[in-house]
Simulated scan of single mutants.
Amino acid sequence: MPTYYPIDETAARRAKEMNSYHDYKPGSATAAYRQEVDKATAIAETQKARVDPMYHEKIDRLLDTYARKLAENINQSHAIAARCPSVLITGPANFPVRKKEKQNRAADANMKEWQEIQGILARIRGVGTAGISSDDENALQKLREKLARHEREQVEMKAINAYYRKHGTLDGCPLLSAEETEKIKAAMARDWRANPKPYESYLLSNNNQTIRSVKARIAELEAKQSSPAPEGWSFDGGRVVMNREENRIQILFDDKPDAGTRSELKHAGFRWAPGQGAWQRMLNQNGVYAAKELTKQWTVSAEQTEITTEQPVSEEPCSEEPAPFSYLQQSM
């Protein structure tokens, strides 16, 4: 049974009155919301039937996140719709055009957030079917199983090649079934090489590279789990948050950053997430380092500004009062 989050029926009724002559049907907003959650629940249950039970908890967590964020988005949508009436309700005379434009911009942002929330359904459908994500709480276990499988394959391929070198045939190889033997023979017969082998060098090399990559990922995740979890920090104009629930490092600003700052954020791998109200990227060592470099730059600028404004007072009388320093305000 899914968890339903509350829908503000008063705001829903008010939004209806501000935009329609028809009466609001009590409970209709809640019913529509629950219908969408029920659809998401059906998707989640279908995915559970397809994948290993070890993924079920993650699917349930994503479903709950979807239900919670959808309720928040719907309530916000109703609040925005109630800010300014439709021109069909008020008529064109003295219509608050500026207020309506502001409302439309808020509605557009709310719609973008809704689209991001719908993306959670795609994440539910993909659980257990793609590669091993660092977001997965069972990532280490899966990576170790993957490593063991590839190491076993490496040993077997070398042993089969050695058997073929010694006997000149794969018949009787204890590591292969009759079906596997015939399949490898057929592949060797199609090979363009003069003296093909059951497993060519590039196959062994590729598999060995996979083993090294998996080992590196295991070491990275183990180091992340064993090291103290980083904490967030503040900077001039905002703060950095370690959102462990989303596995994201997030940068939140007090005001909208300017174009130059937004460009720096994108260059450092951060992307704007309307649903979170933050610039974010994966919570890992690289993400923490990038955030520290960015905020250090902004903090340094603020400190330099402070030093510049605290010049010693000259003993000589000034004939002209200096203009107030405004670099900080211009750079925000």
Rank of each mutant, 00 (worst) to 15 (best):
N73S: 04
D38K: 02
L63C: 10
H267F: 12
R13A: 15
T181S: 11
R244D: 09
T46W: 09
I59T: 09
E145S: 11
A178E: 15
A93C: 00
S205H: 11
M18F: 07
Q225M: 03
E101Y: 12
H150F: 06
D8R: 01
S226R: 04
V127P: 06
N286Q: 15
P228I: 00
A189I: 02
D236S: 06
A130Q: 15
D52R: 10
L328F: 06
E231H: 10
P85Q: 04
S177T: 15
R217V: 04
I132P: 05
Q209M: 14
M1F: 09
A323S: 11
S77A: 08
V214K: 03
K292P: 03
L147K: 01
Y5P: 00
K185P: 07
P174C: 07
L62N: 10
G119N: 05
I211R: 04
T295N: 06
E264Y: 10
R68W: 12
L176T: 09
P257V: 02
I218L: 03
M157K: 12
E321W: 09
V288C: 07
R262Y: 02
A291N: 02
Y33R: 03
S331D: 05
E179Q: 14
P6S: 06
L221D: 01
A302Q: 12
Y4N: 03
L175T: 13
D60Q: 09
I184Q: 10
Q76H: 10
V37F: 02
T41N: 08
N286L: 13
R239H: 05
E222H: 02
A159W: 07
G275Y: 10
R68E: 14
R217M: 06
A15E: 02
E220S: 04
D171E: 13
K16R: 12
D64Q: 15
A187Q: 14
A189F: 02
I89G: 00
A42P: 05
W279M: 08
N206K: 13
D236C: 06
E153N: 13
V241N: 05
I89F: 01
D136A: 14
E220Y: 00
L175K: 14
Q115P: 01
I120Y: 00
A40K: 04
A11L: 11
